[in-house]
């Protein structure tokens, strides 16, 4: 049953990706801004313009362009970036690890912060502590991530300069890494000096991304916990003599966490989307930052490549969440 569910999801995923590819391809071509017009030299003649159009394959119909591009994608050739003049897939995979690391660190922070405050809020339900957590959550949720970024830059970049404002790593450092997963590799290599440097660059953007998600997790998990805490099996645990914290951690959390897990999966995709602006703000060299440049320069092959990889990430995350939910939920597991 689980296998069937997986196969159906896989098929849906492929259809979704194809749909995204079509939409992106058409939209960026009909949207305002012609990449050729942006690179025209002052003395360009009509012949020069036609030559440039042919050079970038823009002299063909949109349908022809699409199928040329799609046949390339199937072979793993996403084309060449107009502005960077390099292989799109190489560029995207070079940047993707930076964005993934940032998103994963932000997610871990959000889960830790949101989970902790939810547990505390559930334990201290009806008290001023819970009210305080609700107010803090409301504030964290109502301020968008880029604004949190600006606040953090002001606080920890300028007033108390603890963290680095821009970049992913200090330019002066020599990096011994063989992958683009700098943070994970620095930990594995036990190069904690580099880990610290990377974290100094990553923490502010990660916190900016994490705060709104932490607030959502906190609110949802707290609510679920409060509902579960009134159920018979939890009451029984209390009767057995468990403390309230033990009751929450050992008995209530497992069942209450299920709806939160689905939400975290969905929100994680939004979080990855949020990296676009936050990476720009912190000049973090990830995929989102490159996406903005690609849009500004009307670099059509690069935009297509980035969007498709983002879409692939989204559907994979959704698939993973779906499968995990099915595994954890006994009713779904039994079909």
């Amino acid at each position: 049953m689980l296998l069937q569910r997986f196969l159906i999801r896989l098929l849906t995923m492929l259809i979704t990706l194809f749909g995204v590819a079509v939409v992106v391809f058409v939209v960026i071509r009909v949207a305002p801004g012609d990449p050729i017009a942006m690179m025209l030299p002052p003395g360009a003649t009509d012949a020069d313009i036609a030559r440039l159009r042919a050079l970038y394959g823009l002299d063909k119909t949109i349908v022809q362009q699409f199928f040329i591009w799609l046949s390339g994608v199937v072979r793993g050739d996403f084309g060449t970036s107009i502005s960077l003049r390099q292989d799109v897939l190489g560029l995207v995979f070079n940047r993707l690890p930076a964005t993934l690391e940032l998103a994963i660190v932000a997610l871990l922070m959000a889960v830790a912060l949101g989970g902790t405050t939810a547990i505390i809020g559930a334990r201290e339900r009806g008290t001023a502590v819970e009210a305080g957590i609700d107010i803090a959550s409301g504030a964290a949720l109502s301020i968008p991530d880029f604004l949190w970024g600006l606040v953090l830059i002001l606080l920890f970049g300028v007033l108390v300069p603890i963290f680095d404002i821009s970049g992913r790593v200090s330019p002066q450092l020599d990096l011994p890494f063989v992958t683009q997963f700098y943070l994970f590799e620095s930990i594995l290599r036990l190069r904690l000096d580099l880990t610290w440097d990377l974290l100094k660059h990553m923490l502010m953007p990660a916190v900016a991304l994490a705060l709104p998600l932490a607030a959502i997790i906190s609110q949802l998990l707290k609510q679920s916990l409060k509902e579960v805490l009134d159920l018979d099996y939890v009451v029984l645990a209390r009767v057995k003599g468990f403390s309230e914290t033990q009751v929450i951690l050992r008995e209530a959390l497992k069942n209450a966490a299920l709806p939160t897990l689905t939400l975290v999966g969905v929100q994680f995709t939004f979080l990855i989307g949020g990296t676009v602006i936050v990476e720009r703000l912190f000049s973090y060299e990830g995929l989102g930052n490159m996406a903005i440049d690609a849009v500004i320069n009307r670099d059509l092959p690069l935009i297509q490549g980035i969007v498709l990889v983002f879409a692939l990430l989204f559907v994979l995350i959704n698939l993973a969440v779906d499968m995990m939910y099915a595994l954890l939920n006994p009713r779904l597991r039994r079909g």
Binding site: L150, I153, L154, G157, V158, P161, D164, I165, S166, R280, L281, F282, S283, I292
Partner: peptide, 15 residues
């Protein structure tokens, strides 16, 4: 540093 606010912060912080 393409964001103007971040450039201001860069110079103001001494980075």
């Amino acid at each position: 540093v393409t964001d103007a606010a971040s450039r201001v912060a860069e110079i103001e912080s001494g980075s």
